[in-house]
């Protein structure tokens, strides 16, 4: 059986992905671009059929940005069973990274336990050689209120994502202080979409 047959089989770990890749990738990229250009503003993103426990929205980001030139680290919850890694490799050709610090991307579903400092912030001369963390969270409205300021934001922007570490503000302050180095975040939430937190913005507790 060839790989393409496996991919088209319903219910197979290798099914799902884009149906019409060119326009779907463009639309998803458009959402990601706007998410990073307008930090904290939720952008609509279509969820892909992806193997458990990979959230469909992370599947969409994977199919949009990953290929054989990229590497992605999967957090512990996504590593179990190997299906997620297999699916991402099959769909995109990406390399699965063993170490957080070596990965160009990280897919995270256990956001409460993530440490931003574990990932590569890039190099002072090449700050683009940094990691992009894609974190699926349970809610965009039920977490602590955070106030964002910086490029892309007119005045300030208030967000309240749940599922981030208890000391997220402090972790972010350290990340922002590295600028122009630092990691960038995409937060996804099923039923909502994607929001971007680029390293360039300042985040403080609101109220």
């Amino acid at each position: 059986m060839s790989l393409s047959n496996v991919g088209s089989e319903q219910g197979s770990p290798l099914s799902g992905g884009f149906v019409d890749a060119v326009p779907e990738a463009q639309r998803a990229f458009h959402a990601l671009m706007n998410a990073l250009a307008q930090p904290g503003r939720c952008q609509p993103l279509k969820s892909l059929l992806a193997p458990e426990p990979l959230p469909g929205l992370l599947g969409t980001i994977g199919c949009t940005l990953l290929d054989h030139q990229t590497s992605v680290f999967l957090d512990e919850a996504l590593q179990g069973g190997g299906q997620v890694g297999e699916w991402l490799i099959f769909q995109t050709g990406t390399v699965i990274a063993d170490q957080r610090k070596d990965a160009g991307f990280a897919f995270i579903v256990d956001g409460e336990r993530m440490r931003l400092a574990d990932y590569g912030p890039g190099d002072q001369a090449y700050p683009d050689r940094s990691a992009t963390l894609c974190v699926n969270v349970p809610s965009f409205a039920e977490g602590p209120r955070l106030s964002l300021e910086g490029p892309g934001i007119k005045g300030k922007m208030i967000i309240a994502p749940a599922g981030l570490p208890a000391d997220f503000i402090d972790q972010w302050a350290d990340n922002h202080a590295l600028f122009p180095r630092g990691v960038d975040l995409f937060l996804t939430c099923e039923g909502e979409g994607v929001m971007g937190l680029p390293r360039s913005i300042n985040i403080v507790q609101e109220g």
């Binding site: 990073l36 250009a37 940005l65 390293r199 360039s200």
Partner: peptide
């Protein structure tokens, strides 16, 4: 090629 350029655009936005 588009994917490679798109990744560069995202970095460019993150580091104005």
């Amino acid at each position: 090629t588009k994917r490679m350029i798109r990744r560069a655009i995202l970095k460019a936005i993150a580091v104005p």
